[in-house]
Design a protein around this nucleic acid. Structure first.
Lengths: 168, 168
DNA sequence: CCTTGACTTGGAGTCGACTCCAAGTTATAG
DNA sequence: CTATAACTTGGAGTCGACTCCAAGTCAAGG
């Protein structure tokens, strides 16, 4: 068995999509632990570090502020979450956040679909170009194109019988 | 058929969860059209304005920068999306972003579930407190608690050839 | 009349998250 | 030996998105 493979900061940046500067910045603010150095002082990263950075990138995409990531990274690095119950609670709360964020995003997608659908009715009804998009969403069979909730973005629910007539 | 109800900026802030300052700021940078004023100069908002701001709030939650919202707001205000094909294209692209963002979020949720599950095995196996969370996600029947993808956050998967460095 | 409160304005300040820079070190190639 | 490249450091600058502020207007209450 060979010694574990290591990576330069540049390679790490390439693999994670996080810039070198940003990786150093994360270390600077101690969001990442101080990376090991080679004799010449250069940072070296191992696979687990890359995984950690990937997780950060993922969390970042969820809009999580860096400060809030700290507990996640603790769990990621140290493999035993049950050790820190309050931390687990924090994470569980964030899980809820994310779930509702997904719902929020799904609303936007539905809203977009609705608008797109709408335009299709008015203009060309035959354009079925690239439709694979909906299927990308992990096997969800696009059951309902528009849920009631996000309808409210557009025409008001009950009264106000006014289809937003091109107010522009 | 009463005259349409109007709201003060304060009421609007309350209803949308966006602060008064922020609403004014959005107007200042022309993200929102200049609101109508009463005789005394005070802004007045109607239901459609509130819907627009709600949409913005929703988009904001998806991490969309304000500048990118402009096209969405155009579509929201003016009811005919088919009018602007390039705009529709832009929106369609963002739809894709969101969809992949949802996947990304789902990964984090799965990751969390995995970690939590893990802790459960080690400690208490009987705690089944609130499990409805997974069901909230629009009928998705929690088929797979952990997909292969996010396993990589934890233990390495394969050689890590080169996953397409990030979405954006 | 004066005060309170809800608003208006323009502009300044803050904060998070980078992003860039200059100066320095070390390794390799010509 | 010099030049290039890949890194190091601390610190400064930028940018988006607010957030706060001071000064002013207007309407109603005591």
């Amino acid at each position: 068995m060979m010694a574990e493979q290591t990576f330069t900061i540049k390679q790490t940046a390439e693999q994670t999509g996080i810039s070198e500067d940003t990786i150093r910045y994360y270390e600077k603010i101690a969001l990442l632990p101080r990376a090991d150095r080679k004799d010449n002082g250069h940072r070296i990263y191992r696979q687990k570090d890359i995984n950690t950075i990937r997780l950060m990138s993922c969390l970042k995409k969820t809009g999580m502020p860096l400060e809030e990531m700290r507990p996640f990274l603790a769990v990621s690095a140290d493999a035993d979450p049950g050790e820190y119950p309050e931390l687990v609670e924090h994470i569980r709360r964030h899980r809820e956040n994310i779930v509702s964020q997904i719902a929020s995003l799904q609303q936007v997608v539905d809203f977009i679909d609705m608008k797109l659908e709408e335009g299709r009715y008015r203009r060309d009804c035959s354009d079925e170009s690239q439709d694979g998009v909906s299927e990308k969403l992990r096997g969800k069979p696009k059951s309902k194109p528009v849920s009631p909730v996000e309808m409210s973005y557009f025409s008001v629910s009950a009264k106000t019988g006014k289809p937003p007539a091109s107010v522009k």
